[in-house]
């Protein structure tokens, strides 16, 4: 009459279910790696009437992008694909050329006191510029700096910046080398307040 003991549930698949959940969470936490261009914004302007420091024309690499996504580099129309080369030439500089940026003797780790270019890249865009174009230009400018640094690091230390970065986690020396290269070619990308011409 009275039912005696219910049949036991087979728990053999419990392990499977547990593994399934485990793998599910493992996978979901590391999925879609977000990538992007990391930049640093300048700090907010204080309300002082101090004029901005004067920068000589020859030290500035002027990049303008208008609302039609046209690129004007140092007064000349240019394609995005040529921007990197031009920017690299400017960043490396040439002490004998009057139109190229000045050099200033600066204290740099490892190398000591050596001339460092006073280059500044100035980027100005219009409110109507498309974001895609802006990113392309940004990307090329960052790429120019990265390539210049890479070449320098290869010449001096025999490894690229990426390799140095990897080594820097383990050794103090590589970290110093990394800092040195960055100090020789400091990344100076200045963004001017955009003009409101072609925008809505």
């Amino acid at each position: 009459m009275a039912r005696r003991e219910a049949p036991e549930i087979n728990a053999g698949s419990m392990a499977d279910i547990a593994f399934l959940l485990l793998i599910f969470f493992l996978v979901t936490t590391t999925m879609d790696v977000d990538t992007g261009l990391t930049r640093k914004l300048p700090p907010p302007i204080e309300d002082t009437n101090e004029p901005p420091p004067e920068v000589k024309q020859r030290n500035v690499f002027q990049v303008l992008v208008n609302a039609n996504d046209d690129l004007l580099v140092e007064g000349e129309v240019m394609l995005v694909s040529n921007l990197r080369e031009e920017a690299k030439k400017f960043i490396i500089g040439d002490a004998s050329d009057e139109s190229m940026p000045e050099f200033k003797i600066t204290e740099v780790p490892i190398f000591g006191r050596i001339p460092v270019s006073k280059q500044i890249v100035s980027l100005q865009n219009d409110r109507g510029t498309s974001y895609e174009m802006y990113i392309k230009v940004q990307n090329e400018l960052v790429a120019a700096y990265n390539e210049v640094r890479d070449e320098y690091a290869k010449e001096k230390f025999g490894s690229t910046m990426k390799e140095l970065e990897k080594k820097a986690e383990l050794s103090k020396k590589a970290e110093e080398q990394l800092e040195a290269v960055k100090a020789v070619y400091p990344q100076r990308i200045s963004e001017a307040e955009p003009k409101d011409k072609g925008g809505k």
Binding site: N125, T129, Y131, E132, K200
Partner: peptide, 11 residues
């Protein structure tokens, strides 16, 4: 940001 967006809003 969408690539077709204008820089005005981004700025």
């Amino acid at each position: 940001v969408d690539k077709a967006a204008e820089m005005g809003i981004v700025t």
